Each structure stands twice: as C-alpha cells, then as structure tokens.
Amino acid sequence: METKDKISRLSVTDEAMEVIWELEKKHGELMFYQAGGCCEGTQPQCFEKGGYFPRMNDAMIGTINGFEFWIDRDLFEYWKYSHFTLDVLEGWGPGGFSLETPLGKTFKVHYRLFTAEELENLEPIKRSE
C-alpha cells in the first residue's frame, strides 16, 4: 500500500502551525525532539534544523510542514500505539530551550490511542543510526 494511504502518527493544531510559521520566518528550517525526561514527556522542543542530534535508535514519527519530529527511543516504545497531536499553550514549560519560549508559548503533545484498524496501516517510522 502507498504511503498516502497510511495513517499518520502525527498531526498539528492550527494554533501550533501559526507559531511554527512564525519560527520558520525567523530561524529557517526547524526540527522537533521530544525527550523522555521527567518533565518533557509531553513537551517537545523545537530547534533550528541540526540544532539537536537524535540518539541512536530514536524514532522520527513524521513531519510537520516538512520539519522532522523525533521522539526519544524509550519514550517512543511507551507511546508507539498513540497518535501525537502537536499543540501550543500560553506560558513557559519546564524546558526553556525550545524556540517558542521567547514568544511566551510552549509546545505540548496530546495523545490518543490508535484504533485496531489504524494500527494495521500506520506510516512507518525512521530510526536514527
């Protein structure tokens, strides 16, 4: 089956997309990384492309506006049966290194479990080497 028929693991809210466009205008190409630390389980970090290097076997679950969205390998194992929706909130999260922080905003991920039918037809992930 072709990728266009596959179920995406990742989506983005309109509000988060507006912030991404603003960051792209200022910083150029971007990337996202979601760590598995105590505070960052739902807060991905946004960097300039190449501003963070995924660890071996981390998972790239999709792209937003063409920008890769990477997940810590252990966090991915925990959430691999879930759809990620990138959202944005007003205020500062625990990270502080993410590009949206100076805007007074924080990216956040909302999860929902895939249905049995969706699990059978998910887009493949890419692993870092």
Rank of each mutant, 00 (worst) to 15 (best):
Y111K: 13
K108S: 06
W79V: 09
I125P: 00
F53W: 08
L99E: 02
Y33R: 03
H110Q: 08
I125C: 06
Q45H: 03
D72H: 08
F107L: 08
M1W: 15
L99C: 01
G51V: 02
E15I: 07
R55D: 09
G41P: 05
I71Q: 10
H83E: 07
F114D: 06
Q45C: 06
G51S: 00
I64G: 11
K80W: 04
F67K: 09
S11G: 03
K4Q: 15
N65Q: 14
H27Q: 01
L86Q: 04
A16L: 04
G36F: 00
F107V: 02
Y81C: 12
F76I: 00
L103A: 00
H110M: 11
N65W: 05
D5V: 09
P54Y: 04
D87A: 04
M1Q: 08
I64T: 11
P94R: 10
D58I: 03
G51I: 02
K108V: 09
F114G: 02
E68K: 15
D14W: 02
E129Y: 03
L99D: 09
L99W: 00
F53K: 10
G51T: 05
R9K: 03
C38M: 14
E90I: 13
E77T: 07
K26C: 08
K25S: 11
E120V: 12
E68H: 12
E24R: 07
D14R: 07
M31C: 15
P124D: 11
T101D: 13
K6H: 03
L89R: 10
P94K: 13
K6A: 05
Y78T: 11
S82V: 13
M31P: 02
D72Q: 04
K6W: 01
T106L: 14
